[in-house]
Design a protein around this nucleic acid. Structure first.
Lengths: 232, 232
DNA sequence: GTAATAGTGTCTGTAAGACATTATTTA
DNA sequence: TAAATAATGTCTTACAGACACTATTAC
């Protein structure tokens, strides 16, 4: 190991995203300590080398401690590092993106976080604004060719609810026929409760969601699946 | 800062890729020190907090020291971390992908590195095999929808040379007509030496490359540009 | 019946991919 | 002339996107 060079501080920050009021929101809390005491910041923490088996474990532990929840989706974003992002000196932050449905957060009864629309952020501590921007870009991009948005919904959802989710992520509306053909789904053909193969994006359940109109089939996500072609 | 938890060691590793013998090759050197003394490994180094302005600067400095070169393309891949990847304990490696034409490496007369085909790797130190696999996946994926492969060629190249580069990255051949329409280029229409707009992927030079046949127009890359649709 | 949303079918434009054809050089 | 590669055009298929139509519930 290097001897005559200072080791930079290493931490993990989490961009926890959810859908609220028809748009992407990020979870922020008010810092209680310096630096940036009083400022809004992302949840984050240090690696506990005795217990954390990898960085994902660190991220999960931090979220568990602060929300009591495990996110439905968790993915490493990238490292942010340098001498100026933290006034205490050279630091490395490994940034994670987490997705969770708003219902889960509300049921946890957690009062630490406030949610802010990602397209209208207040001033933030450290380089957290850049981390959020980068995370949103990743989510929007990955949503354009995959089933990523499923993890912003509860486990079972209707196709229309899923379409609304895509629309809220992109901020624009889609054609229903196009949306369903991209998913490769004809509701009348699907057999509930089976996953034919890995290429199948969604799994039909045997439950329906009714309202004051024709009931809709409920689906679950099979896995993080890719569309044939990208969307743009 | 955390007090009663050990700070993990932080380093930067570089997956330096080039094209050799019709396929992607990675630069490896033989380690002189423990751990893994004698084993093949990626170039890497520690952060110098006094001089490095960010992680990209660290990566560039390490490459400069070991090859005397600045790569044509450099991008952060992701972090690899955990208690077992380095026998000395919990460590964090930030992995970078670098692209460079083989000619540049050969001209530098550097003797440290050996090049290995990425699809037939020997045993490697640390988790470097996983880093390489991840880097190759990133390069293949990004090549399917962008001008990334241009940075594996010298500054000026013909369209056929570029097509061969794509083919060598993917390991399969392409149709020439399709390739050119994806690039949006009709050679007879282009005006040398101008960049009409940012959407223009390549810039025509006024030079031609001749052989025992009709000479071909030489092009330069404009910027990292995206195709309209992905390729798969 | 109406209102409301679920689900499907049809048409059009664009682009990928295969392949044939023309163009321009050297020998 | 032949050989070799550059460059372009044509045809087919596939899919995104728009939009219209039918289906099934509550009231």
């Amino acid at each position: 190991m290097s001897t005559h060079y200072t080791t930079p501080a290493v931490s993990v920050d989490i961009v926890l995203l959810t859908l609220k009021n028809q748009s992407l929101h990020v979870a922020l809390h008010q810092r209680q300590q310096d630096p940036f005491s009083g400022a809004l910041a992302l949840p984050g923490g240090y690696i506990h080398t005795e217990e954390d088996t990898d960085l994902e474990a660190t991220a999960k532990r931090v979220l568990q401690q602060k929300t009591g929840l495990t996110p439905r989706y968790l993915e490493q974003l990238r490292c942010f590092a340098g001498p100026v992002r933290d006034p205490r000196g050279w630091s490395v932050a490994i940034s994670y993106v987490a997705l969770i449905p708003l219902e889960a957060l509300e049921q946890s009864g957690n009062g630490i976080f406030h949610f802010f629309a990602v397209d209208a952020l207040p001033a933030l501590a450290f380089d957290h604004a850049a981390q959020i921007q980068s995370a949103v870009q990743r989510v929007r991009n990955k949503s354009s060719y995959s089933t990523l948005p499923c993890w912003l919904l509860p486990e079972a959802f209707t196709l229309t609810e899923l379409q609304r989710t895509y629309e809220q992520i992109f901020g624009e509306t889609l054609s229903r026929g196009t949306f369903r053909s991209r998913l490769g789904i004809k509701v009348s053909d699907v057999a509930p409760g089976e996953a034919a193969d890995d290429a199948q994006l969604l799994i039909a359940t045997d439950a329906m969601k009714g309202g004051a109109q024709r009931p809709a089939r409920l689906f679950k996500v099979n896995q993080l699946g890719l569309f044939r072609r990208a969307w743009w």
